[in-house]
Amino acid sequence: MDSVTVKELSSREEIRQGFPVMSQLRTHLDENTYLELVLEAKEVDRYRMFALMEDGKIVAVTGFKPMTTLYYGRFVWVCDLVTDQNYRSRGYGDKLLSYVHTWGEEHGFESVALSSGLKRPDAHRFYMDNMEYDRVSYVFKKSLT
């Protein structure tokens, strides 16, 4: 992991390069919809996207939003976190999420929060056991369409 770096994906082309990895998590998105949503989220929601690079290749991607609510105060909400299926169990998710923690601390945020799908017990173990997250709530969703 000596040649591992974290890079912000800012331009349309950089964001597009993150799609092959992000699509492993967000399987319902095609590349055009992905680009449209990321660019809109960057513009209206302060969404930031970062990639973990190994020898110049994207091996993991995260997207997060700095937020403020009455419940959490000032915090970072991790919207997306995925490691390429060919690079899992090498500590890349840990490294990228730790980067988000550091980013949050450096920018004056009090905590990092995220949600994880009910059918992802491996991810839950990762967040609670490896990353020392607490389970603090359930997330509920109602479709309006």
Rank of each mutant, 00 (worst) to 15 (best):
V112P: 01
S143E: 12
E40N: 11
K7Q: 15
E110T: 11
T33F: 00
V21G: 02
T102Q: 15
S115H: 10
L96S: 05
T5I: 12
N130M: 09
S143L: 14
R120S: 07
L81R: 07
V139G: 08
M49C: 15
M1V: 14
Y133N: 01
I58C: 08
R16M: 10
I58K: 13
M49N: 04
G63N: 05
S115I: 10
Y133R: 01
K119R: 13
T33C: 04
L29C: 05
D30N: 10
F109C: 09
T102V: 11
F50D: 11
E132F: 09
S11W: 08
H107E: 06
K42W: 03
Y72T: 06
D55A: 14
F64H: 02
H107M: 08
Y47W: 10
G91K: 05
F19S: 02
L29Y: 13
E105F: 02
G104A: 13
Y34P: 12
E105I: 15
E54N: 15
I15D: 02
R90P: 01
Y133L: 00
R26F: 00
A60M: 07
D30P: 09
D30W: 03
V44A: 07
G104L: 10
D2C: 02
L97E: 04
T33Q: 13
A123L: 01
W77V: 00
S11H: 04
Y72K: 05
Y138T: 11
W103I: 06
G56Q: 08
S3T: 13
E13F: 05
V100P: 00
T27Q: 15
Y92A: 06
K42P: 00
D134H: 10
L37H: 12
K95Q: 12
L144Q: 04
M131P: 06
G18N: 04
R90K: 11
K141V: 15
K119L: 12
V59I: 10
E14Y: 03
I58D: 08
T33H: 02
W77R: 08
K141Q: 14
V44E: 14
R135N: 11
S3E: 14
H124P: 04
F126V: 02
L35S: 05
E31H: 03
S10R: 13
K142T: 10
S98M: 09
L29M: 08
T27I: 09
F75Q: 11
L118R: 11
T27R: 15
Y47G: 06
M22Y: 14
E43I: 07
E13G: 01
L37M: 13
V6M: 05
M53G: 01
A113Q: 12
K141R: 14
S116L: 04
M53S: 03
T27P: 00
G73E: 08
E54L: 14
L9W: 04
M22L: 12
R120F: 02
T5V: 14
L118D: 10
G91V: 06
Y138H: 14
M22E: 11
S23R: 15
E31F: 04
T83N: 05
S111L: 08
